[in-house]
Design a protein around this nucleic acid. Structure first.
Length: 422
RNA sequence: GUGAGUGUAGCUCAGCUGGUUAGAGCGCCGGUCUGUGGCACCGGAGGUCGGGGGUUCAAAUCCCCUCAUUCACCCCA
């Protein structure tokens, strides 16, 4: 066994980066709570069916990106490639939808078998919220506002919000037919991959980056003209609400989202600083999803945001520098010989028990080196014991900023430090 | 899944068209200073040159395969 590395597309999060993750996680908890959402934690893996039935056959996620395996009981299991379906599954399993509204948020890893590149990993991290029960546009608006508040809270300023409406079960099929009819006529002018998508997932052609496709799409029918009256109203109300909150959203009729379950509102947030994987955030309404999973007809709207990408952005904007939220060491214990170390251990414990962040160098390095480490750790005091102190039954407490030293009896060290740090 | 680039010390990298014991800076350890920090000087440890195979008298260097990584396609958070 040699040179073991993290599996392709995964990565270890080491200090000091791990403290940036902790800060991000705290911000997510705080902002979601502020908007009235409570955390739900679901398993990392689910029955494969949970995803196949909701995300949809024909989507890339289900067809080629899931980590699926048969467990020892013969069940088909998949690592979750997203978290909306598991949240709905859990809500149904525990009858949470009996008491609406239901507002949940989550954060954690997701898994997709893709070729890694900048901002795209096989184990990625997302947070998101789901709001069930509200059919009106206020919920859509709230979720978009929440997403932007999150961007603000982590210090990301350079981004673009785009929204669209995909229509509902009444009006979307007509658009789909019209689009397929048009694209079939123009099939010869489409890119190869889009000709395939025409059969499997025609809406996806709408957000193709291919120049050939773009040209064809210029003359394609748009969903806007097919929206039924209530969908039109919903979309107009949403835009009004956003405007009333001072939120600027670009209407992009080509947004379709990668998952089958979206209805009406869809939105995305992009950033120019991310390279090809420029999407930070995507969400929308999914009024048919709960019912499709065997629950009561329940409207829902949600968002998912990539935590990996958020951190890339907050780092590139310099905001990460302020994000060293790691607890600073307050006291460094310095033992100069074995016997002193033995005597200092219970004192260290007493200090820690008082709620003071303290640590001790166990490597028996020379005094200079230990003091240097103490200084770098940010500690305010060093507690030093060598032969002199040991024979006298006390320690030297040194203020690392002023270098002032005092001798304190061994039994009084914790009280003395507590007082000085108060 | 497709294409291109990159893998040399813990980190960042040098090593020309193959040629002795593979180098630097930072970091780490020690000394100058038998017990008072950030500096300076001196010394030291640390390398399967990603892995495997091939060509050659000789491979970090050339060829093939493989793994990892980066970027793009695709897709998406």
């Amino acid at each position: 066994m040699k040179n073991l590395t993290a599996p392709r597309g995964t990565f270890d999060i080491l200090p000091p980066e791990s403290s940036q993750w902790q800060v991000l996680e705290r911000i997510i908890d705080e902002v979601c709570a502020r908007f009235g959402y409570r955390e739900i934690r679901t398993p990392i893996f689910e029955s494969s069916e949970v995803f196949v039935r909701t995300i949809g056959v024909g989507t890339d996620i289900v067809d080629k990106e899931m980590y699926t395996f048969i467990d020892r009981g013969g069940r088909s299991i998949s690592l979750r490639p997203e978290m909306t379906a598991p949240v709905v599954r859990a809500a149904l399993a525990h009858n949470l939808l009996q008491t609406l509204p239901l507002k949940l948020y989550y954060r954690g890893p997701i898994f997709r078998y893709e070729r890694p590149q900048k901002g795209r990993y096989r184990q990625a991290h997302q947070w998101g919220v789901e709001c069930f029960g509200a059919a009106g546009p206020e919920a859509d608006a709230e979720i978009i506002a929440l997403s932007l508040e999150m961007m603000r809270a982590v210090g990301i300023v350079d981004y673009r919000l785009e929204i669209n409406s995909l229509g509902c079960a009444q009006c979307a099929p007509a658009f789909r037919e019209a689009l397929v009819a048009y694209l079939s006529e123009q099939a010869a002018a489409l890119s190869e991959t889009s000709r395939e998508r025409l059969q499997r997932n025609p809406l996806r052609i709408l957000d193709s980056k291919d120049d050939l496709d773009r040209a064809v799409l210029a003359g394609a029918p748009t969903m806007e003209r097919f929206l039924c009256e209530s969908c039109q109203q919903h979309f107009a109300d949403l835009r009004f609400l956003l405007e009333s909150m001072g939120i600027r959203a670009l209407h992009n009729p080509h947004i379709v989202r990668g998952l089958d379950y979206y209805t009406r509102t869809v939105f995305e947030i992009h950033s120019v600083a991310l390279g090809a994987q420029d999407s930070v955030c995507g969400g929308g309404r999914y009024d048919g999803l709960v019912q499709a999973m065997g629950g009561p007809p329940t409207p829902g709207v949600g968002v998912a945001m990539g935590m990996d990408r958020m951190l890339m952005l907050s780092r590139s904007s310099g905001a990460a520098a302020e994000q060293d939220g790691q607890t600073r060491l307050q006291v460094a214990f310095v033992a100069l010989d074995d016997e002193s170390a033995r005597l200092l251990v219970p004192v260290l414990q007493a200090v820690r028990a008082r709620g003071i962040a303290a640590d001790m160098d166990y490597l028996r390095r020379k005094l200079e080196r230990q003091l240097r480490a103490a200084g770098e750790s940010g500690a305010r005091f060093a507690v030093i014991m060598g032969e002199d102190e040991r024979t006298a039954g006390d320690v030297t407490i040194q203020d690392l900023a002023t270098r002032a030293r005092v001798r304190v009896g061994l039994t009084r060290v914790d009280a003395e430090l507590a007082q000085r740090l108060a």
